[in-house]
Amino acid sequence: MQRHEQQVRATVLGMLGPVAEADDVAQEVFIRFFRSLDNFRGDAQLTTYLSRIAINLSLNELKRRQRAQKRFLFWQRSDTTIPDPADEHADPARMDDQQLVRQALQYIDADYRSVIILRLLDGYSVKETAEILDIPMGTVASRLARGLDKLKEVIVRWKAM
């Protein structure tokens, strides 16, 4: 577990951002893995298998968060939108580089985010990333390029503040 802990935590933190639930989700990845040990056929590498669980659980958490936000907005009847990187909620001036990049990742689409995390942070090849996300290799390359461009825009904007 210790060998894979950091990679799983990096994946989940990248997907969900620096929030309290990220640790719970990272723990849940290993719990799911232990519970499904009988189903683990060993034809996938353990790291790939864990990354797939981590991405799926993170996407579930993002959906849950979206539903909760919708309910909240319904009751509040407000027109609140996702905070702009320039607003005080994000407060980039107080962040170190790691916090900054994790926070900036939250402002790009989850489809792009997952590719960036798997390719650049976890170091998977295009083929492995495509297998984990179940998408064509061409889509991985295009999402990575577009995602990195969008991420760059957010970071440059924050750094200029």
Partner: peptide
């Protein structure tokens, strides 16, 4: 330059080890 910097930032965003993680699981 900006894209290379962004890529490096992402590659360095590995969280510090959490000594209590295995125990919590």
């Amino acid at each position: 330059e900006q894209l290379t910097y962004t890529r490096e930032l992402v590659q360095q965003a590995i969280p510090a080890a959490d000594p209590g993680f295995s125990q919590k699981v």
